[in-house]
Simulated assay, not measured.
Amino acid sequence: MKMRKEIFPELIKAYHEDEVFYRKLYEEEQLRPEEFENFVAGLDREYIKRHELYVPAIHGKWLNYLNENELFKTQEDHIAIQKHYRYSPEYIHEHEFYEIFYVYEGACENTIQNVKYSCSKGDVCILPPKTKHSIAVFDDSIVINIMLKASTFHEVFFDIFTGKNVLSQFFAHILYDKTENNYLLFHTGDDDGIRSLIEDLYMEYNGRVRYFETILKNGVMTLFCLLLRNHENHLESFLNTTHKNLDMLEVLNYFQKNYANITLKSAAEHFNFSVPHFSKLIKENTGQNFIEILKNIRLEKACYALANTDLSIMTICDIIGYPNPEHFSRLFKKEFGMTPGAYRKSRIQS
């Protein structure tokens, strides 16, 4: 059934078939523990496998690390939005993608950093990769999860890092200082703008109408902006930090603005470092060398141009700083497993 905005609350609160399964499983274990083993023995294993359900009594310890391929089935997928299934078993895990969860209705229990938190209606939690956490919903509360590929986050949302705000500083540490176990928790309360935007994002993702991916990317950017505008002073955070030899946020912003004609020598001179020392600092703070960072920025720009413009591949090469189209094509195919032309065609068809 296609969702309409006016009936969204009713539809999102309705129990999905898998939620009914999980609720029954939970009730049997809580109310009749002495009979639970027999109950599990009688479960339909084919149904469980077909629906990809998790039953601890059958599967034992679940995956504690989720890679992007387990969530994003194709290279064209960038953002996934789902309702967290109520009564699904809680388990501590981490993953290589970004996760934002929003408490749409009621409350939920979370474990982050091995510390338990109670989140209430309107809370927005941002979890970067490699943050151990779990979500527990064992009543009629509604939690909506937004998952983003790391590459999509880097490509689409870098503009928000240009300001000196809590998000820019937070993500500068996450992305370029290589720290783990961090989170941001915004308390938005009854902010109708946030609530309405989350509804729109959920409907766009599930409707999957033409251009929905672009709308999703812009929508998540808007979410970040609204959080900063209205709730920067209504947050809790935990940030592991490492020593910093230079302001990597400033350095990466400079790379983003000058990627077409920048060199290691020109960048080092701009920041008043010798070339060897600047190169070493970049590697220590990002885990990548200058050439790798520049290549990633240029290819991200190329992907955007291929998917969103009619510019020729030769013109795109000139714009992003690769004057040799053959060299660009080899790099692109090595990175994405297809030629620039095939990538453009796949984006048009999607």
Rank of each mutant, 00 (worst) to 15 (best):
R4D: 12
Y47E: 13
F158Q: 08
N324D: 14
Y22W: 01
E94F: 06
D159P: 03
G189L: 01
I198G: 00
F212D: 09
L264E: 15
F39N: 05
K217S: 09
N272K: 09
I48C: 10
F8C: 01
G189C: 00
R45C: 08
S312W: 02
S237P: 00
E199D: 12
Y259C: 10
Y87Q: 05
G189D: 03
R330N: 14
S279D: 13
K244V: 07
F336P: 02
E70S: 03
K149E: 13
L216G: 07
L311R: 09
F158E: 07
Y98K: 04
E29K: 13
E155K: 08
H187I: 02
I319R: 11
L31W: 14
K83R: 14
R344C: 12
H95L: 05
V137Q: 04
F72I: 15
L184F: 01
A260H: 11
G122P: 02
Y183F: 15
R210Y: 01
E76V: 09
L306S: 13
V137C: 01
S196T: 15
V124H: 09
T74V: 02
V103R: 09
Y176I: 02
Y85D: 10
L66I: 15
R4K: 13
Y22Q: 00
L239Y: 07
H133K: 07
L25W: 11
E109W: 02
H243W: 10
M338I: 06
I348Q: 04
A342H: 01
E10M: 08
E204N: 12
A342F: 00
Y104V: 00
E99A: 09
P129A: 14
D123S: 08
F238G: 06
A136Q: 07
T162F: 05
F332T: 12
Q169R: 13
F278D: 04
E68G: 09
K301N: 13
N182G: 06
N67C: 09
F271D: 10
E105W: 10
H231Q: 06
F273E: 02
S196W: 11
A57I: 05
K61C: 00
I144A: 05
P340V: 10
L299H: 06
H51Y: 09
R229G: 05
S274T: 10
N206C: 02
F138G: 02
D159K: 15
K178R: 12
R195E: 03
L246C: 03
Y104I: 02
L281Y: 14
H173Y: 03
S329D: 15
M203P: 01
G321D: 10
F238L: 03
A107S: 10
P128T: 14
T162G: 01
P323A: 15
G337Q: 05
N181H: 14
K295W: 00
G122A: 06
T242W: 00
I320L: 07
L239R: 11
K295R: 14
N240F: 01
I100L: 10
R210M: 01
Y259E: 15
N272P: 00
K73Y: 10
K333V: 07
T339S: 12
E17W: 10
S266H: 04
L252F: 02
N182V: 06
V103E: 11
D247T: 12
E10K: 09
L294M: 11
R229E: 12
N240I: 02
S329L: 06
T111L: 01
E6R: 07
L239I: 15
K295P: 07
L216F: 10
G163F: 10
I291W: 02
D44K: 03
D123N: 11
K83W: 04
D159S: 12
